[in-house]
């Protein structure tokens, strides 16, 4: 049980650090020193000390969104194993439950954005839903492809048994699934080439549009929920990609944390070297992710 408490605690504490690593990598690529690794924590702390301003046209839905978003993301963590470390709770079929929780978190963000009555935020909400409709099947197909090999429908039963032997036997499938999941990871976390998390100026942004009206503690919650989502999808990818299953808690844990950090560095490299796709091309990318995951699901 003691090992089972580690993944959620680690996620709650370490999630914003991943964003710090991404920012730092991008800074390094640009030849700058960059903000401290802990900058996301400072930002969240600063926002939590501020007061919130609410527009007169918003209702309780707007206030519910951010807090409930964090709650739902934290709920996901309860079912999320970290490599060989078990999740606190697990039941057959919880992978569908977690995917629905992620969808619920998205729904809460979207409905809060719609509640402001701003056409700009409505536009972002519509984009988010349109792209999510393509990203979700890819995520589901990818996870089910792995589930088909391990024969279990829970995240824990799906990720923990993957070892070096699985990679030797079904390497092609796992690679395809990983490629699909990685594209979903980039899209769902609004990273380049789908969305640029640093922009607040352009009409092509997706996630940042929806949270423009949130301020103070609400925005801190939004940021924290985004960090948790980054960690959740990242942990799924790392769990499949790194078949380190020694049984020693310390070694398994170190491998997964190193894997997550490596993933963050990879995202930073991608953001530094690629440009964002035109908005009309994003569906192509996501359909590509779907086909990769579907191919991984079908060939085995």
């Amino acid at each position: 049980m003691s090992a089972a408490i580690l993944p959620p605690v680690l996620a709650l504490a370490g999630a914003p650090l991943l964003q710090g690593i991404i920012t730092r990598t991008k800074a390094w690529f640009a030849g700058r020193r960059g903000p401290p690794l802990l900058q996301p924590y400072y930002d969240i702390a600063k926002l939590l000390r501020k007061g919130a301003v609410y527009s007169g046209t918003t209702s309780w839905v707007f206030r519910l969104g951010p807090a409930a978003g964090v709650g739902v993301a934290a709920l996901c963590l309860l079912f999320l194993p970290l490599g060989n470390l078990p999740a606190p709770f697990s039941f057959e079929g919880d992978l569908v439950f977690v995917i629905y929780l992620l969808a619920l978190a998205r729904f809460l963000t979207v409905i809060a954005a719609m509640d402001t009555g701003s056409a700009f935020e409505g536009m972002g909400a519509s984009r988010e839903m349109a792209f999510a409709a393509l990203a979700e099947p890819a995520l589901l197909f990818g996870l089910v492809a792995v589930a088909r090999q391990t024969g279990r429908l829970s995240l824990e039963g799906l990720i923990r048994p993957i070892d070096v032997g699985d990679w030797a036997a079904h390497g092609a499938t796992l690679l395809l699934v990983l490629a699909g999941l990685f594209l979903v990871f980039l899209a769902e976390n609004s990273r380049i080439p789908v969305d640029d998390p640093t922009t607040h100026l352009e009409l092509t942004m997706i996630h940042e549009v929806m949270v423009l009206d949130h301020g103070g503690p609400d925005f801190a919650f939004v940021e924290y929920a985004a960090a948790l989502k980054l960690w959740i999808l990242g942990a799924l990818i790392t769990g499949i990609a790194l078949p380190v299953r020694t049984g020693e808690v310390a070694i398994d844990l170190a491998a997964m944390v190193a894997g997550l950090a490596g993933l963050a560095v990879l995202v930073g490299i991608i953001e530094s070297t690629l440009v964002r796709l035109r908005l009309v091309q994003v569906p192509h990318l996501l359909i590509g992710a779907c086909s990769l995951a579907l191919l991984g699901f079908l060939i085995q």
Binding site: P283, H284, I287, G288, S291, L294, L295, L298
Partner: peptide, 17 residues
């Protein structure tokens, strides 16, 4: 178009398998 072709291709992949 490319999108439609890709989707048709995915259906074709299932049928081929």
């Amino acid at each position: 178009g490319p999108m439609g072709s890709t989707l048709l291709g995915m259906v074709a992949l299932v049928v081929s398998l």
